[in-house]
Amino acid sequence: MVNRKPIDLLAARIKLRHLQIALAVRDAPTAKEVARHANISESAVSKTLAELEERLGFKLFERSGNSRRPTAMGAQVLPVMEALVARARSMAGIIVDVRSGFQGSLRVGVATDMGKLSLAPLIHAFNQAQPGIGLDVQTGGFRAMAELLQQDGLDALVCYDDHTLVSPELGRLRLAPPQPLVVVANARLSPLASRQSVTLHDLHGQPWCKPRPGTMMHAKLADLFLRAELDLPPRGIHVSDLLLTDEFVRSTDYLVMLPVAAALRLTAGLDAVILPIELGAHNPPTIVVWQRAHEWQPPLMRFLDFCRHRLGQEAASGAATQ
């Protein structure tokens, strides 16, 4: 068992000012510059640095001509100190917000049709439960949204599960399980709507709202026809917006492949029907993903806790109805 007493004692003796001065020494060309920016004397800079190194038990810097450079041990701990100082600044910002009554903001991206369907009621309920948190919901392609998350442009991303999102740096929470994929057609205009059975060859000859190349759903559609030794249907358009796709299906004879939950929403008004063909394909689970380095921030913590609570309620409700 690890003896935590020396760790706790050392943590209690290291002050934020120690870390700030150490980082300033690392980044400034001279002690004089450090002193000027910190608004203290050069002797105070040297004294603070010496005090920190005494408590650490090793030197952070070594002389290199007229300048200093990190020692081997210093190079290991200085990035950690930088992260702690940055977190302290974030905490100070949160405290200022709390004083003013502002509860922070949350930037949520969505990169899937199922994500849009899952996120709308979730965001509505969260907004009712946490009205003081400002919400910014953005949509876009998976690659662009995932890159935005990694660049700190988003706090959380709702998307289909993907192998590129499996990383120790990322937290993941499943929002919806995999769903069967079905084909939806206009109930009046599609010549396939009244069929008792439909084949892949029948589907291939019709106009389609096809997913954009490079997306998961595009790959699913291509694989579907490949199994029948067919190329993608030549007729139709590429479209990635769920609402625009809905309008095409409601007003034209275009076909679309959707997760069954999205299809049932579209067919509820009797404008569209699910065609009688078993595709044998599913979409991946829908997940929310975030950077673990930021999960301590209050708005994100509250959102994730809210998601977990809702999932627990849904699981309990499902068990009660069985």
Rank of each mutant, 00 (worst) to 15 (best):
A129T: 06
G153K: 12
D161V: 08
A156D: 11
Q128P: 03
G171Y: 08
V158H: 04
I133S: 01
A111V: 09
L170Q: 08
Q138D: 07
F126I: 10
L175A: 02
H163V: 06
G134E: 11
Q130G: 00
T112N: 01
A111R: 06
F126T: 02
D162P: 08
S167A: 10
L148P: 02
N127H: 14
G171E: 05
G109C: 03
C159L: 08
I123S: 00
A129M: 03
A156K: 02
L175I: 00
M145A: 13
G115T: 07
P131N: 07
Q138V: 15
N127M: 10
L119I: 01
A146Y: 06
P121G: 03
V110T: 04
L157N: 05
T112S: 15
G134S: 13
G153I: 13
Q128D: 11
L122R: 04
G115Q: 03
T164W: 12
V166T: 10
R174V: 14
L175S: 06
V166N: 07
L149K: 11
A144W: 03
H124W: 09
H124M: 07
D162M: 09
D161W: 13
V137R: 04
Q128S: 10
L175V: 13
T139N: 03
Q130D: 00
Q138M: 12
Y160W: 13
T164C: 14
V166P: 00
R143K: 15
E169F: 14
A129R: 09
V137L: 04
I123R: 01
G109K: 06
F126G: 09
G132E: 05
G109M: 04
R143S: 11
L165G: 15
G109E: 03
L154D: 01
V158I: 13
I133T: 06
R143I: 15
G132Y: 09
P131Q: 08
G132Q: 11
R172Q: 11
H124A: 15
L157R: 05
L117G: 02
I123K: 04
V166I: 15
V158R: 08
D152K: 13
M114W: 02
A144D: 10
Q138L: 14
A111Q: 07
Q151V: 10
L122G: 05
E169R: 12
L122K: 05
L148D: 10
D161M: 06
G153P: 02
A146G: 04
L173I: 11
N127V: 02
D161C: 03
G171L: 10
M145R: 14
V158S: 05
Y160F: 08
S118Q: 15
Q150N: 14
L149F: 06
P168D: 01
G109L: 03
K116R: 15
D152G: 01
E147P: 01
L122M: 14
L173P: 10
D136I: 10
G115P: 06
G109W: 01
L173Y: 05
I123D: 00
P168W: 11
V166Q: 12
L122I: 05
V137S: 04
M114V: 01
A129D: 02
Q138N: 10
M114D: 06
D152C: 07
T164M: 05
G141W: 09
E169I: 15
L148F: 06
Q138F: 14
S118R: 09
R172H: 12
L149W: 06
